[in-house]
């Protein structure tokens, strides 16, 4: 659910009793340029959250020696990704998919019981 802040609804006519504020309207000052402090904070958060995820994605495309020796944020190769995938699915006879299935089963069953317990029990307390 995105809210586009650039397009706004047509402004309502101002009530007659309230005089229009003088000078430049607020929107113009907001649009003038990028405010430095919020931009800096946003950039820091972006680095903090996105960089590790990006590293993880890129690490999956490398061979083991590339992971250690090449640039941390360089792309490896599709061939290495393919080889990693094959090795991973071979590992202990498809253990990864078995584990994923176990996770899904446990989480789903617990979720069903949670909802059956939490929702009616909470209504009792009102």
């Amino acid at each position: 659910m995105r809210t586009d802040t650039r397009t706004t609804a047509p402004p309502l006519p101002p009530p007659a009793a309230v005089p229009r504020p003088r000078g430049r309207p607020r929107r113009a000052t907001r649009r003038l340029g990028v405010q430095p402090l919020p931009a800096l904070v946003l950039a820091l958060f972006l680095v903090f959250f996105v960089l590790p995820a990006l590293w993880l994605v890129l690490a999956a495309t490398k061979t083991d020696s590339q992971l250690v020796h090449s640039n941390p944020l360089a792309f490896g190769s599709w061939r290495a990704l393919r080889a990693n995938w094959d090795a991973l699915t071979d590992y202990q006879d498809n253990a990864v998919f078995l584990w994923l299935r176990n996770s899904a089963l446990y989480a789903f069953l617990a979720l069903v019981i949670t909802l059956c317990v939490a929702i009616p029990r909470a209504t009792d307390w009102r």
Partner: peptide, 21 residues
């Protein structure tokens, strides 16, 4: 052994309690 302990989720009970009240 891992489904039952996590099925009774206190935060969920509290959240629904807040919502309903």
């Amino acid at each position: 052994s891992i489904i039952l302990p996590y099925a009774f989720y206190p935060f969920g009970v509290y959240l629904t309690y807040i919502y309903f009240s």
